[in-house]
Design a protein around this nucleic acid. Structure first.
Lengths: 149, 149
DNA sequence: TTCGGTGCAAAAGTTTTGCACTAGC
DNA sequence: GCTAGTGCAAAACTTTTGCACCGAA
């Protein structure tokens, strides 16, 4: 089970700081949304957020959700997620982005997480060579897993 | 400029073979669509295909396009593409998937392609360790490029 | 007190469906 | 000739917008 390396509340603080930097207001709706997004496992869509919040007794409108998602993306806490050919916009928080790569089986849909020290080193070399400062990344290999190969 | 390693017509043949395997019909519409998709550079959406085909005098309806795209994805020639937080479904063909990775600058949007022998080796090792046979991949690093860092 | 933010209702888009007709096999 | 596939029109959904009201700073 993947555990976030950074606590949710510290990420909420980061978001509040980001809002202040941008001179945007820290509203109850935005706080509820960022907490829900950070607590989410895997990918989800706009409506999932509304349903989960409603289950907690918090009512946030669709327009507000759609207006808040881009802020979460801009602030770096969220990213669109598209492993398969969904027709809708799915999202995923970025808490697990570091050091977790994915092997995706095109036959059974199984997703295997992995880490690799050699991969780490190769990427550091690439960054140095191109003068690129990497912040986040997405590494996905598509193919056949050990059960389907 | 990136050149496909495999010719378009051989990929069209592959698609025809795939259709036959699935006992699906090889229609004019499907052939026109697969050719257009394979000839496309970068990301595009359903309507782009219709417009380009119409410019060539071929008329293919939206429903047919939407019904064909999943076939192209299933057959491995196409994949959804989501570099940024677009609200619509964009696609990209998989011709250039091999040996081209991306550095994406979050500040200026610049996309730098790179290859790395060490990365190659690291990925081979990962596959071997997990009994995974990789067919395609997507490797994207998000961060600041040499001009924005 | 002042604007930016929210919710509602309606609009705008995109993707899907039902059905009659067409064309691949 | 039989079916799967196509196009049209309409429906279904997701996402956006206009506007009046509310609440954070």
């Amino acid at each position: 089970m993947r555990e976030p390396t950074v606590s949710i509340e510290s990420q909420v603080e980061q978001f509040i700081g980001w809002l202040r930097t941008k001179k945007l207001k820290v509203t109850q709706e935005r706080l509820a949304l960022v907490r829900e997004v950070l607590a989410s496992k895997g990918h989800f869509e706009a409506e999932d957020l509304q349903i989960r919040l409603r289950a907690q007794g918090r009512r946030v409108s669709k327009p507000t959700i759609y207006r808040t998602l881009p802020l979460l993306i801009e602030s770096g806490l969220l990213r669109p997620s598209f492993l398969t050919g969904e027709r809708q916009t799915y999202y995923e928080n970025t808490l697990g982005d570091d050091k977790h790569e994915h092997l995706i089986c095109v036959a059974c849909g199984r997703i295997i997480e992995f880490t690799s020290e050699r991969l780490e080193e190769a990427l550091v070399e690439v960054g140095r060579k191109h003068g690129f400062i990497a912040q986040k990344r997405r590494i996905e290999l598509f193919g056949l897993c050990e059960y389907c190969g």
